[in-house]
Structure formats: C-alpha cells, structure tokens
Nucleic acid binder design. Structure first.
Length: 483
RNA sequence: GGCGUCGUGGCCGAGUGGCUAGGCAGGGGCCUGCAAAGCCCCCUACUCCGGUUCGAAUCCGGACGACGCCUCCA
C-alpha cells in the first residue's frame, strides 16, 4: 500500500507524494507564547511529532517549520498588564515550552522562527498583496478584502455570504473594516493603550503584523511558495488557515499547501479543558504529580489524531501500564539467552518481526492510524512472549529481529526511549541501598525466613522499588509514584 | 441559525457487509516459598427505530444524545 493522509482541502484520504521526490516540506502552527502550553496543545504537537517521525521512518527527508507567535493581542496585553517588554513576557514562556517539548520526547524541528524576527518578510507579503489589488488601507491599517479572492473559505467549507457577523467583530472599533468578514494584515493607526510595546515601522506607518500574516510569511521564507503539508489543530481551520490560504495564494498565484492535516481536540475528564472546571493540566503539573512523561506521550498518541481523545488521570494510569508491558518485553528480549545453533529456533521469531513490520506499516500508512499500529505491536509482543515461554533459549537472529522491530516501533512512537530515562534511579545511594537490601533478602530466603524476606520487599516497595525474582536472580525497578 | 464530527464490551479506544483489534481493569489457572513479571482461559460489545440485503454494529433514512468551529483557542 501507499502512504496516504486525510486532506482537509478535499475531505478525503489521498495518496501522499511530496512535490520534490523524497523530501517533505512541512509547516506546523506553533504556540502563542503568552502562557505555558497545556496538554491539549501538546496533543497536536505530539501527533505532529509522530507524523514527522513516521515520514522519516518511511525514508523521507523532512524539513519542518514551526513558528512561535511572540506578538499578538494576548502577549501584548500581558506585557502592558505587567509593565514589561514583549520580550520579557515571551522569552520565559518560550523556554518552558521547549522544556515541556523535550520532556515529551518531541524531536527538534528544523526551524522555529519567531514572528518578531520576520516583520520585514511580512511587510513584503502585504506589499505584494497591495500590488495585486487585494487590500485596502484605513487609518494606517491594511485589510484583506475577501471578496476579491475567489474561493475564499473553501478549506472550511464556508460560504462567505453566509458568514455570520458576530458581536465581537462589531465591537472592535479600532479596526473598522469595509466588510466585517475581511481580516487585518497590518494593524496600524493610533493604539494609545498599547503604547510602544509592539511597534514596527511600515509603508503604512507604525504598527504590527496581523496574526494570520506571520504564518504565510514564515512558511514561504523557509519552505518556498508551496508546501507539502500544513498541520494544526481543527480550531485553526477557520479563520486562520482559510486566511493563510487567501493571502498566500493571492500573493503567489500558487497553491499554498498541497495537504492540510488537522488534529482534533483533547477533551479532559469528558469535557473541554478549562481552568474553571479544574480539568486543565500542563505537562509540568502532571510530572510533578508523579506521572511519567512516557505515559503522557503514549496516551496522547494512542487515539487516532482525527478523533477527540478523552484525557483522564485513569487513562494516564492505563497508559503507564501499557508502556510498562512494552518495556518489560524489551527487557525480556535482552535477558533471553541466545544461541547460534540453527536448530534451536523452533518459534519463528523473525517471522513475527516481519509480520509486525507489515501490519505496522499498513496501519500507519493509512492516515497515521496509531491505534491500529499499537494493536499490531501488542499482538507481536504477546505472540513473542508465548514463543519464548516454550523455549529456554532463542536464536540470535530471532532475538535481533525482534529487538530491531521494537527499535523501529520506538523510532516512530518514542515511548520506550523516554521510559529508559525514567527507570534509572538517578541516585547512586538509592541504588547501593537497594542492592544491599536485595542481598539481605536473598540471605533470608536462603534461610527460609520468608517473613523477613517479605518485610524487606515491603520496605523497598515503600521507597518505590518493586522486586521480581527470576531464574537469574532478583531484579528491581522503580514503580510509578502517581498513585 | 450555518458548517462539521461522533455515538463500540467495566474504562479507554481500532476496525469491517459475513471471519480474534489492542490496552487497562475484573474472575479462574500455570509459574513462584508467597508475590511480581510472563503465558493460557473467561467476561465477546457496537444509542434507538425503520429500510436495503441471504446476512448490518458496518450501507440508506429517521429519532435521541454528545462534541467542535462560525475572526486571532492545538
């Protein structure tokens, strides 16, 4: 089968081919850095990371751009409220954003342009639009006239005539538009309330760029005039992406992006996340409560990206167990004695690995069906466990094939590599103490003093250390602190 | 009002016109000094009402319910 994605432009699943063979140019709508991002935001970023990793695993070179919106109404308001500069608002938030990014094991993308660093490019774009006759100016602001762009709203399946005029638009007297459906490219004119928090010079006088403008300008700066894939959350479809298309295609006369992929929202405890309901989480708050990042990442990726996913703390616990199962399996592979004796490998481990790869590829090729891919992986784990139960040793080639399969799985899902870091104690003292207690317990068991042995095991468990007795002795692991 | 998505077993979540998703939880067993880990077995569902069909949870129609967007929220 071929790789295919759901394209919001056509509302159908289409075979995917980048314009340039073997090279995917991808743009991702990034965060507005006015306050710390929450897990809902990270559902989209985690999925985009899965998409990126899968494309790479399929052999494509990926050039991805994710912008940082560091100037908009909210960042400006925050700066005014606190009496600080825009930079003083956005710099710390940007820093925590990338901390969370790293916590979740998201790969760095090729470019993270800031809006404030690309104002000249944005002004250029507005000038092109002006020359093309798509704009009008009023009181130092420049607007895009949507009725001069045929096909406006196609992405969102919106009929421009039917667009309701909301009270919010009428209420913004700072930007009087000819047509309430038009959008601002350049916000100029007198904005006494904003002071000089965010002001750039332009051919139309001092002002600042509109939100939609920045993505088009930065995407074209780094990726050219036509992208292969543009991603974002469903809430961005209208008006943001509709407007990006309008201003980009009006300027260039070329399709702006060949595929538009949109992630559904994350629900929290059954309803939309909000601070008032108290179901609002950040990555940091979850980690502080003892949840493992690998579990958070797994949960965010476990449902198909085009379905609403219900995030619950119980679900997070389930996810933690599921990752643990994969982790245990990989550990078992590493501990299974291997042999090069060709007669030994009665269970066909290489066959299991191969059929996994086939199922996994089929699942992910189908519009990134992550749940199906996970299902295939767990099926391989169960069958391989069963095969290993029936033999004391396994062939080197078979074990290597399974390990390679898990490596491939993790190149895409990235949960085992996160768990690796979480399993180490990080404390030499703890480790030394654990080893001592295990030795003491072994002595008690040898003397058949099981009461004492169990007491030691409980003592370790209180410290978050679980023991497992196996043929080759006792091993230990850290348990989740979350519950 | 307009546009759109969705209703699957205790929970979470794939999928398909007839053939086991998967994870977690629960019950029984094997293993273990007892556990843990692992394996086996069980619990086997598709909101409701019509229709199409040899056969529908899967297609069509309707009802009910949930959710999202409708100018700057991933």
């Amino acid at each position: 089968m071929t790789l295919r994605f759901h394209n919001t432009l056509t509302r159908t699943v289409q075979d995917f081919e980048p314009a340039e063979e073997g090279h995917v140019r991808m743009y991702t709508c990034g965060p507005t850095v006015y306050e710390r991002a929450h897990i809902g935001n990270f559902r989209a970023f985690a999925w985009e990371d899965l998409l990126r990793r899968y494309l790479k695993w399929r052999g494509y070179r990926v050039t991805q751009v994710m912008n940082l919106t560091d100037v908009d109404d909210r960042t400006i308001q925050a700066a005014i409220d606190r009496g600080v500069s825009l930079e003083q608002v956005t710099a710390p938030v940007t820093e925590t954003f990338f901390e969370d990014w790293e916590t979740l094991g998201l790969e760095p993308v090729e470019h993270n342009p800031r809006a404030t660093g690309h104002v000249p490019q944005m002004i250029d774009l507005v000038r092109r639009l002006e020359e093309g006759g798509f704009t009008y100016e009023k009181d130092g602001s420049v607007y895009f006239a949507i009725d001069r762009f045929p096909g406006y709203g196609r992405l969102a399946n919106i009929d421009p005539e039917a667009l309701r005029v909301g009270g919010r638009v009428e209420g913004d007297e700072n930007y009087p538009k000819e047509n309430p459906r038009d959008f601002v490219l350049w916000k100029g004119g007198a904005r006494g309330d904003e002071g000089d928090v965010a002001v750039w010079g332009s051919p139309w006088g001092p002002g600042r760029p509109g939100w939609h403008l920045e993505c088009s300008a930065m995407a074209m700066e780094y990726l050219g005039e036509t992208l292969d894939i543009h991603t974002g959350g469903v809430d961005n479809i209208f008006p943001h992406h509709v407007n990006e298309i309008a201003q980009s295609e009006a300027a260039t006369g070329k399709p702006f992006s060949r595929w538009w992929l949109h992630a559904e929202h994350l629900l929290s405890e059954g309803e939309k996340m909000s601070k008032s309901v108290g179901n609002f989480y950040t990555i940091e708050s979850l980690v502080d409560r003892g949840h493992r990042p690998s579990a958070i990442r797994y949960l965010l990726l476990s449902a198909h990206y085009r379905t609403q996913l219900n995030f619950t703390l119980e679900g997070l616990k389930d996810a933690d167990r599921a990752v643990g199962r994969l982790f245990e399996f990989r550990r078992r592979l590493a501990e299974t004695p291997s042999t090069d004796d060709p007669g030994v490998d009665a269970p066909d481990l290489e066959g299991l690995a191969n059929s996994w790869r086939e199922s996994f590829t089929e699942a992910l090729d189908d519009d990134l069906n992550a749940s199906d891919g996970l299902g295939a992986t767990f099926t391989m784990v169960r069958e391989a466990n069963l095969a290993l139960d029936s033999a004391a040793t396994a062939s080197t080639a078979g074990l290597e094939a399974l390990e390679a399969a898990l490596g491939d799985f993790d190149a895409v899902f990235g949960v085992l590599s996160l768990r690796d870091g979480e399993e180490t104690s990080g404390s030499a003292e703890l480790e030394e103490w654990v080893v001592q207690r295990i030795a003491a317990r072994a002595a008690a068991r040898a003397g058949r003093d099981f009461g004492r042995a169990d007491a030691i095991r409980d003592e370790l468990l209180d410290r978050g250390v679980a023991l497992e007795d196996g043929p080759s002795g006792t091993r230990w692991k850290l348990v989740s602190k979350a519950d």
